[in-house]
């Protein structure tokens, strides 16, 4: 994979550009309108014009699909997936990296998508729960979760499954205790832990390719 060129200069928002936009606003031409109204209207329009310049370009590959996007730097990978790409399988459970519901794979590694800005993943490959199955064929971990009833409400499930797949790939599914420790970053408030561990053990012991 070739890395994109470095972003030495801000491609997006910068104060001088915004100030320039403000000063050159079209509305300043409306000199016959009383001062305060112009001022208010100017501010509003300026903000809207300036906002368009606050986005930066971003190239990402999500579940094998290449995306060319324009995002605010403050957009997290999680919000990008859920709100911009309509990949709502990745869940928001806390937004602070404290629950694991937002777990996705970035270049094969499990991470909390809520705690990183999308722009920091320029050029990377993201896999979400929607990209795990091959067409209609569920991934063995998904099959095992269904079989062992590794969920109840289903909200933490995508994160649990993404984490479980990584847990096995990393070699951290050697024992029940090891699975429990290495899955502790994924909270299930319904408490389906016993069944989740059983599902992971089955996949691990079954020797299927994960």
């Amino acid at each position: 994979m070739s890395l994109p060129p470095d972003l030495e200069q801000p491609a997006g928002h910068d104060e001088s550009r915004r100030t320039f936009l403000k000063q050159s606003s079209l509305l300043t031409a409306l000199t016959f309108v009383p001062g305060p109204v112009v001022q208010a209207a100017t501010n509003e329009l300026d903000e809207k014009v300036a906002a368009a310049f606050e986005k930066v370009p971003l190239k990402l590959e999500v579940n094998g699909v290449k995306h060319k996007l324009s995002v605010e730097p403050r957009t997290t990978l999680l919000d990008l997936l859920r709100e911009n790409l309509n990949l709502t399988g990745t869940k928001k459970g806390c937004d602070y990296g404290q629950c694991g519901a937002c777990t996705v794979h970035v270049d094969g590694q499990r991470v909390n998508s809520c705690l990183s800005f999308a722009v920091m993943h320029e050029g990377k490959k993201i896999t979400t729960i929607e990209g795990l199955a091959e067409g209609d064929k569920l991934h063995p971990m998904q099959e095992a979760f269904v079989k062992h009833d590794g969920f109840q409400c289903g909200y933490c499930t995508p994160g649990q499954i993404m984490s479980a797949v990584a847990c096995v790939r990393e070699g951290h599914a050697g024992s029940e205790a090891e699975i429990r420790e290495y899955m502790s970053g994924n909270i299930c408030r319904c408490g389906a832990y016993s069944n989740i561990v059983a599902a992971i053990q089955e996949v691990k012991n079954g020797g299927q390719k994960v």
Binding site: D6, L7, E8, Q9, P10, G12, H13, R74, F117, M120
Partner: peptide
């Protein structure tokens, strides 16, 4: 808040970017 985002490839550029801007920080 909105912020500027830069991704330097050189260590010195990164250091300069933060040293010279009181509101800049590394990530």
């Amino acid at each position: 808040n909105q912020f500027q985002y830069v991704r330097p490839s050189k260590q010195q550029a990164a250091i300069d970017a933060v040293a010279k801007d009181p509101n800049a920080t590394f990530i």
